[in-house]
């Protein structure tokens, strides 16, 4: 075997090795960035296709349905009774509305909404502190949900059960808007920026 051959062979094998490396790199990037997120999150549709736009037009603002109770607690997603106040009888001819009346309001069954922003049980979050005292807009955390005409598909993490909105739609965890992720770090950073208390019990229970 000549040196020339040797070199050609080495160069050839280096190229092959590089290709192997790149294939590995490419495959793993594909796995990490595409396949893994697809496996990690499952999807569910909300029980009723709900239009925020229609309701904000009719009610006027967020607080019409998502209101503060007298004790300062936040009502969150409205109960069936709140819905029934207007929808005891059909307001229009939307099949989704009829479905809600037939399947939930008439039998008196709560609608099993899936909450995009649901935090785990160990989290204490005070809407009063942020909205009433901090004067932070709903949008700052919940984004443009008030402008949605249809409910988004609810994606949840199959390991943790968390809604995908907690980590954020972007699997990299990078965000450009405050409402794109709701992890503890996001809360902490905002508290730091505003000189707010970051002791554990402020947000945990």
């Amino acid at each position: 075997m000549s040196a020339q051959d040797e070199r050609t062979k080495t160069a050839g094998s280096s190229a092959v090795l590089l290709i192997c490396f790149l294939v590995g790199l490419g495959a793993s990037l594909l796995v990490g960035w595409v396949i893994f997120p697809a496996l990690l999150y499952s999807e569910k549709e909300q029980p009723i296709d709900f239009s925020h736009v229609v309701h904000v037009d009719a009610v006027g603002d967020c607080e019409g349905c998502h209101y503060f109770r007298d004790d300062g607690s936040f009502s969150g997603i409205p109960d069936l009774s709140n819905c029934a106040e207007c929808h005891e009888e059909a307001q229009g001819e939307d099949p989704e509305e009829l479905k809600m009346i037939q399947e939930y309001i008439e039998p008196g069954k709560e609608i099993p909404w899936m909450v995009y922003s649901r935090q785990p049980d160990c989290v204490f979050f005070s809407h009063a502190a942020h909205v009433k005292m901090g004067e932070i807009e709903c949008k700052a955390c919940h984004g443009m949900i008030g402008e949605s005409e249809h409910t988004d598909t609810y994606e949840y993490n199959i390991l943790t059960g968390y809604s995908r909105n907690i980590w954020g739609k972007n699997i990299s965890g990078l965000t450009s808007n405050t409402w794109e992720s709701m992890k503890m770090g996001d809360c902490g950073n905002c508290h730091d920026e505003h000189g707010e208390n970051n002791a554990c019990f402020v947000c945990h229970k």
Partner: peptide, 19 residues
């Protein structure tokens, strides 16, 4: 024991809601 810290949170929520 947490000195019932959740009660502090609750009381503060009420206060905040009342301004």
């Amino acid at each position: 024991c947490s000195f019932c810290f959740h009660r502090f949170q609750g009381a503060r929520d009420k206060a905040y809601a009342e301004g």
